[in-house]
Design a protein around this nucleic acid. Structure first.
Lengths: 253, 253
DNA sequence: AACTATGATTGCAAATTATGCAACGATGCT
DNA sequence: AGCATCGTTGCATAATTTGCAATCATAGTT
């Protein structure tokens, strides 16, 4: 589509793993060293990469700038922050905030566990559509047609023995999630971690994000995890209210 | 220099001001709408931009990802320097700072011993994955799968009689290191030198670097070396705190 | 100090790739 | 239904990008 651009973006991805010299980048890429160099010079001109004293390239300040601006643009995040912090305080476990970015579910915020055993994740990563609790919550709110279309097109990667592997099973699970108002990932993504997630709605009533609580199984068994659901839903409802949502089940006046 | 790339990077700069439609971007830029569209499609493919339901473009999750990765690797070295200097002052021995650069462990800083007997090493050199204390510390924090993959693929060079020579032995040692929070190299790399190393963590809790203290055996016996562990871990914890890490074992309130 | 090795840079010719135009398609509004 | 707005595509032109080979810079070595 746009070769040089795609190659340059891949270079940025490589540099995310750590600083690298021109030669290192050129050998990892499938293009000539000269080409890599010229792309890097352009990236450098726009401050997307910088060169240190040893002429090693690393990601540049422009990326930080863009990233923080982009995050600010997402106001769900700002609204959710204080509530998620309270939940994190209360439970001590890892809290994630996720939303659709285009067609994948992306983590847009994270609060670290205060436990010594932590789970691995990072803001910006995408969540598996057939396994993550946040994905289930977000999918469950889509109109049936979209839901089915997505269920049919997913790449069903098997993460653990319990991972949902068929469109039918996924759709059934989504019905359950929609009915009960929250979702569980019962070690469907990582063998030793389970999570619960709940929806965040805006004034229109649509689910705009999902918050989740992820806990290593060594710290909490199934029952213990389910005990997190009430504080979690209390938290997501509080965020939803801040976004202008009115709980239809309360004051049905 | 590289026209299409420069134009695409400018588009990202424009989007930093807020979401925009294709036409808006095209009119702000000095190029044809078609061109803008094709650049955006490439950016979208790599998740640097996303399109919402109304086909407005906004900055994408890949930017968050790159930026948070880059922040993690940002100036550990600068943060560590003053603390390492104090440790060097206190002990008088050689201090190393090491981190993953791609797939090998690299020394990223060094403070010389003030003793007449010195060890040879240099910033930028790579540490043996199966022998160096810093490597053990860094490997011990990786997720089990990565750890095992690396253990299986290492070239087990035999440096001394005590060098770890099998994946199983290495993995067992890494478990020990993870549990006790520091690592020892008991003359496994050089016959007459032994070291201790401890992890440096960032705000996310992940180990981003390792600091070590290397001592010729003629200067310090095994017990003497172990006596260096408390000042070493105090040092690495101080650095970790500077990087935003919060000790989960302190104030578990 | 000269030599060697490693890595970065540039001139140039070939051609792949990006560009702009114009026509087409999709979507929403009156 | 018709109109308007905006996104998308086919194609010919030409301009940008590419890879090679030669040159330059730097650091390490004898």
């Amino acid at each position: 589509m746009s070769q040089s651009l795609l190659r340059a973006l891949d270079l940025l991805g490589e540099l995310a793993a750590g600083p690298a010299s021109l030669d290192e980048l050129a050998s990892r890429a499938t293009v000539h060293k000269t080409t890599v160099m010229r792309l890097l010079h352009s990236l450098e001109e726009k401050r997307f990469v910088v060169r240190d004293a040893q002429q090693r390239y690393r990601l540049g300040p422009k990326l930080f700038e863009l990233s923080s601006l982009a995050l600010e643009q997402r106001d769900v995040r700002a609204a959710a922050r204080p509530h998620l912090a309270k939940l994190n305080e209360l439970t001590g476990h890892t809290i994630h905030l996720a939303a659709f970015e285009g067609s994948d579910v992306t983590y847009i915020d994270k609060l670290e566990s205060r436990q010594p055993v932590r789970m691995y994740s990072r803001i910006g990563l995408t969540a598996a559509l057939n396994a993550a609790a946040v994905s289930k919550v977000l999918l469950a709110d889509l109109p049936p047609a979209r839901r089915e279309a997505i269920a049919a097109s997913i790449d069903y990667r098997k993460f653990t023995e319990r991972t949902i592997m068929t469109p039918d099973a996924l759709l059934a699970e989504l019905d359950r999630v929609a009915a009960q108002g929250w979702a569980i990932d019962d070690s469907e993504h990582e063998e030793f971690v389970h999570c619960v997630a709940a929806p965040i709605r805006d004034a229109s009533g649509h689910v705009v994000a999902a918050a989740s609580c992820s806990v290593p199984m060594v710290l909490l068994d199934h029952e213990g995890l389910l005990a997190l659901v009430p504080p979690l839903t209390a938290c997501t409802e509080a965020i939803s209210q801040d976004l202008g949502w009115i709980n239809p089940e309360r004051n049905p006046s």
